[in-house]
Amino acid sequence: MDLKEEVMAALHDVLDPELGVNIVDLGLVYGVDIDENNDVVVTMTLTTPGCPLHDSISHGIRNRLAVIDEVGNVDVNIVWEPQWDPSRMSEAAKKFLWG
């Protein structure tokens, strides 16, 4: 597994504490970029602008990725374009929320 795959797999462990679904399955993660120093930039959005959990989710990402030895610095970039929409959710997330 290369580092990018490892990072993506780790992000599955970061949960939205309100919904109980991880941020990858929610479709919040738009991309992961890793440079030559193994510094990681996670580009993501939130389900709604001004979501009060943005700090918690960012902490979750930093803490989870810090466990991976090869990872250098971690930066989380929050973007609002493209806007999140439910079609980005995985089937598992949709099933969990809608039953």
Partner: peptide, 8 residues
């Protein structure tokens, strides 16, 4: 209480 512990 838990924000900074999340992921850890």
């Amino acid at each position: 209480k838990y924000s900074e512990k999340s992921g850890k």
